[in-house]
């Protein structure tokens, strides 16, 4: 169009600029394919997950987003018929390298699930469970870990006077934050979250979202969510999965304001899914 000229004035909100503070890549995924038996669930996934950022994974049910996130800590291998090809590198190390112990990977990469799943133990015991299995026995160190983890999960003030009570007595939102505290107790670098707020009420959801924003200073977070507003609010980058493929992986601002792919636009505007 010859008559139209792009405005010279800088927009107040520039949504098209790449992330100004480039961070290191914590996960590098190359040509990753995954099959459950004969059914292929992921196709040629190619993604770099940045450090100290929140990366959201969105897509309709059955698109492979949970499979993908569970591949990052090799949990997906618990399904007997799984086959994989391609590469997933965590901090430049191949996570499928036989020399790389899966326990080491899962110490670095914690996971929080859709439904809060505290152990039927006290709040205190839930948090120290991981550190104890790693051989930490000294009470003073365990106490320190409990306070630090519960503070990190924004739960300390609510439970500090009842640490020995059963975790099942907490509300759903508190239980989910306890699970995050349990995850923080082993001092991971990455936290994977698989729909962590889908079973929670709006206030608990908002607390978890605020928490995610705080946690990204110290952790890299990948979050699978069905709630697109949540992805838009809390993530820095968003990947849109469809039928096992990454259709678009973009800065969240771009993806939700002016996506590159028509299928992303159709999904985020509710035309399908």
């Amino acid at each position: 169009m010859a008559t139209a000229t792009k405005t010279q004035q800088a927009p107040i909100l520039n949504t098209n600029e790449p992330d100004k503070e480039e961070t290191k890549t914590i996960y590098s995924i190359e040509d990753f394919n995954l099959w459950y038996g004969n059914d292929q669930a992921l196709y040629e996934v190619q993604m770099d997950i940045p450090e100290n950022r929140v990366t959201a994974i969105i897509g309709p049910s059955g698109c492979g987003k949970s499979t993908f996130i569970k591949s990052l800590n090799r949990m997906v291998e618990l399904v007997p018929s799984v086959k994989m090809s391609g590469k997933i590198q965590y901090k430049e190390k191949d996570i499928f390298d036989p020399k790389y112990k899966v326990e080491d990977l899962r110490t670095d990469v914690g996971m929080v699930f859709q439904n809060p799943n505290p152990f039927p133990k006290s709040i205190y015991e839930n948090v120290v469970y991981g550190p104890k299995t790693h051989g930490i026995k000294k009470k003073s160190i365990l106490n320190e870990i409990v306070e630090k983890s519960l503070r990190g999960a924004a739960l300390w003030d609510e439970v500090k006077d009842r640490l020995n009570e059963n975790a099942f007595g907490l509300s759903g939102g508190q239980q989910q934050r306890l699970c995050i505290a349990r995850c923080l107790a082993i001092e991971p670098d990455v936290i994977l979250m698989d729909e962590p707020t889908s079973a929670l009420d709006p206030i608990s959801t908002s607390k978890i979202e605020e928490l995610v924003q705080t946690l990204k200073k110290d952790y890299s977070i990948a979050i699978v969510t069905h709630n697109m507003q949540q992805a838009a609010r809390i993530s820095d980058k968003t990947a849109f999965f469809l039928n096992g493929e990454v259709i678009e992986y973009n800065n969240t601002d771009n993806l939700f304001s002016n996506p590159d792919d028509r299928r992303t636009e159709d999904y985020i505007t509710g035309r399908f899914g």
Binding site: T3, A4, T5, K6, T7, Q9, P11, N16, S257, N258
Partner: peptide, 12 residues
């Protein structure tokens, strides 16, 4: 209308 379709501001 240009903004709607292109997602960027243009001057006419």
């Amino acid at each position: 209308i240009l903004y709607l379709v292109k997602g960027k501001s243009y001057k006419l």
